[in-house]
Write a protein that binds this DNA or RNA. Structure first.
Length: 272
DNA sequence: ACTATCCTGAGT
DNA sequence: ACTCAGGATAGT
């Protein structure tokens, strides 16, 4: 579920709510979510540590800890990290981090999320994390970089934008929105994208991510931020989930197709 | 470059 | 009963 703006919304809240607090106890209700440690070593390694900061890279969250290991989290489709000052029951709770003040709940309905212990001096050893490209909204993701990546691939532009090793943070919603904003059809081969189109796409990616962040993320179904509240960016989407409704630019109907196994929405008139 | 798969839940 | 879902990866 969560893409860059959603994960950043969680990060920003947890940075203020949980950083500086100490993990007193870890209860792991679903051990298989931890990918690189057994349940007991996982809990014992984190207990007693202070959370010194909360970072984000792509769609990964890092709870930096004072000890040798820190906690890396990927929320995948339905994960959520929620800080509670007062205890209340949350459906789908898979792990509970009791802090010296309040607690952190890891909730995950579909249980596809991942937790890892990583060295505090720098997360390493997690394949997907190690191979991340530059964050899609970072200065490192330049037009020149995009041109270079696109020219050497015969894949579709949609598949390449979803590829986290090319650039990190985009998911299905923001890719469809960015392609609409840039006027590029999702099934285009990325080697056919012109420099002018890359320029529009580069700006469009920045715009849709900034807008998502500004609205506290997009909540279609499950997403909630670190404070347990939903985002509001769903009210500003122009194609995602809009199949069968008029295009906001030209009035022709938004189309739904499958592209690389992912549901894809676009305007066949505005996007060429 | 596709597809099958990991899961649960909601909608048709 | 069947399809779909904001993600990623191990297969083919």
């Amino acid at each position: 579920m969560p893409e860059l703006p959603e994960v950043e919304t969680v990060r920003a809240y947890l940075e203020t709510a949980a950083a500086g607090k100490r993990i007193e106890r870890v209860d792991l209700l679903l051990p298989r979510l931890v990918k690189n440690a057994g349940p007991e070593p996982f809990c014992r390694a984190l207990e007693g540590q202070q959370i010194t900061g909360v970072k984000r890279r792509g769609k990964y969250l890092l709870l930096q800890c004072s000890g040798a290991v820190s906690l890396l989290v990927h929320l995948r489709m339905t994960g959520a990290l929620i800080y509670q000052a007062e205890e209340s029951v949350i459906q789908g709770t898979r792990a509970v981090f009791t802090l010296d003040e309040g607690r952190l709940i890891y909730r995950d309905i579909r249980t596809l999320g991942c937790l890892w212990l990583v060295p505090s001096e720098g997360p390493a050893g997690v394949k997907g994390y190690d191979s991340l490209g530059p964050d899609a909204n970072s200065p490192a993701c330049t037009e020149a970089y995009m041109i270079e990546k696109f020219s050497s691939s015969r894949r579709t532009i949609k598949a390449v934008l979803l590829d986290q090793t090319v650039m990190a943070g985009l998911g299905n919603i923001y890719v469809d929105e960015a392609l609409f904003s840039a006027g590029i059809a999702p099934q285009r081969r990325c080697s056919s994208i012109s420099a002018g189109e890359v320029k529009r796409l580069h700006q469009a990616i920045r715009d849709v991510l900034a807008q998502g962040l500004q609205h506290g993320g997009t909540t279609i179904r499950d997403f909630i931020g670190g404070n347990g509240k939903e985002g509001s960016n769903q009210a500003f989407l122009r194609v995602y989930g809009k199949e069968g409704t008029p295009c906001p630019q030209c009035g022709s109907l938004i189309v739904y197709v499958k592209s690389g196994g992912r549901g894809t929405r676009y305007c066949p008139h505005c996007q060429q």
